[in-house]
Design a binder for these strands. Structure first.
Lengths: 227, 227
DNA sequence: TATTTCCTTTTGAGTGTTCAAAGTGAAAGA
DNA sequence: TCTTTCACTTTGAACACTCAAAAGGAAATA
């Protein structure tokens, strides 16, 4: 049985690896993310490698093995189902549930999780728009793109808020920047480092850094701008 | 912040102390209940005393301090509200919820607990009939008595099942021995070590050990048999 | 009183997780 | 090429919790 700490490391590695699956994650990054000193990560990563959950290349970084990825998806499934449960059943605000789920994800049994999944109607996405892995470990992975990479006239639907700090979530909510909202890019001001878009009939301007925290599924006609 | 282990010890001491509050609990008892070796308890109890949660008299036993009792009631409040939540909202069977709550009681925040309490309508008792301490630490303590101390013709209502092992709970449920059920003692067979009673119109015989696991609130006319 | 028994405590050690601080390697700059 | 720098690793130690086994104390028995 993986300890709570092991689950947290594995989940974090998964998330650091997300932009480019299979990529090596540096131990320094991991130390920052886990809020521990670098030496602690070196020690821990060796133990994870010993347990077959990651492959570790000294001075290069870590990467999840298939077993590690399976565990990561299990933890994420628990985390995201709990978040959705808290929002839908207990009427929490979606900006508050992250920290709560962080604790509960290590305490719910498979049986309880199954009840929750059933009660919620086997949902595919959590309140932030993140996909909920299936019990078998499959994830729906829609092609999403950060808002800061948009071009004028692009049009799409907000799918996820990647930056899940409570303050940012409140900021986004207050402006209608929530999963499901339609957006149309009005202008991109490169020197001004900002982007202006239309949401719910209102024009909003936000900086590139903030825009990077919002992921959008563009409508087909703009899909060519990908690559 | 009390660790999970500390919370478990404190809760256990509270429960061992229950029959006679203020009483000393021997370390051996505690070791058995916590399923650890006696030496571990000695070490742990010293640390609890250091933290001001118990008073410890070497070779005599432990007793909760007011601070310890406050913590115990907090933990019990979490445990019992969670049990009721699992039964009422997630449709668990009451015989299944104990182990589940054992984990969750260490993971729910005060805010989440408050939501649950509100959603359930600020209940006073959990599915086993145990009183749920208030947030301020007050417990409704009805005068209850084990069924094995009953006399023929005693009549009352089952208030609690003290033995919460899943197997016993299923046994009790199957025979209608659930909180709220009216019982009338038909006979007490001392040499035969058994007791016969009427529940839901059916006559049932059970051994003294099993009867000790069922707590009853007797009707006034029999209250004199107390002391 | 002397002995036995039972419970409790002590001692030494191990596991998992963490830190501080010293040491090492590899890439970047001089 | 030599040096500096930065990231990473190692080492030694601590903390919380646990066990096994030896030692000690108090009460019951002889």
């Amino acid at each position: 049985m993986a300890s709570r700490t092991v689950e947290d490391y594995i989940k974090q590695i998964y998330q650091e690896q997300q932009p480019a699956p299979g990529q090596l994650v540096s131990l320094g990054r991991l130390a920052t993310a886990m809020e521990v000193v670098p030496g602690t990560v070196t020690t821990m990563v060796k133990a994870l490698a010993e347990a077959g959950l990651v492959s570790y290349e000294p001075r290069q970084g870590v990467r999840l093995t298939p077993a590690g990825e399976k565990l990561a998806l299990h933890v994420l499934r628990r985390h995201r189902l709990i978040e959705l449960f808290l929002v839908q059943v207990l009427k929490f605000d979606w900006s508050e549930v992250h920290a709560e789920a962080e604790e509960l994800e290590h305490a719910v049994s498979d049986r309880l999780l199954e009840r929750i999944d059933e009660l919620l109607g086997r949902p595919g996405f959590d309140p932030h728009g993140d996909p909920i892995p299936s019990a078998a470990g499959e994830v729906a992975q829609p092609r999403l793109h950060p808002l800061n990479a948009a071009r004028p006239a692009d049009r799409g639907v907000i799918a996820r808020i990647a930056d899940q700090q409570a303050e940012f979530l409140r900021y986004a909510t207050a402006r209608g920047l929530v999963p499901g909202a339609e957006v149309v890019i009005q202008s991109v001001d490169v020197p001004g480092d900002s982007i202006t878009l239309l949401v719910r009939g209102k024009s909003r301007t936000l900086g590139r850094a903030a825009a990077a925290g919002i992921l959008v599924a563009w409508q087909p006609e703009t899909a060519a701008s990908e690559l």
